[in-house]
Amino acid sequence: MSGPPQHDHPDVVLCPGGPVLVRGAHTVQDADGQVHEVRRPVVALCRCAKSARLPFCDGTHKLLPEGARP
């Protein structure tokens, strides 16, 4: 008998071909040093660098060819 399991629940998750999800962040500093407030419990940060709303993911990775995705 193992009982109810302990589940993995990572704070940072790299999505294949897509953004990195970050849980519990309140602020994010972008590459220019500007700090952005985060108001949602999980935020998706851009990894393809093509987002129009950097540092946040806006789904643009889906427009890139397979080989150019993160």
């Binding site: 953004p19 949602r40 999980v42 935020v43 998706a44 709303r53 993911c57 806006d58 789904g59």
Partner: peptide, 14 residues
């Protein structure tokens, strides 16, 4: 919805 659903699609699918 641009930003929210970029998160939500990952949460929902995965």
């Amino acid at each position: 919805h641009v930003e929210a659903d970029a998160v939500h699609e990952q949460l929902a699918a995965r």
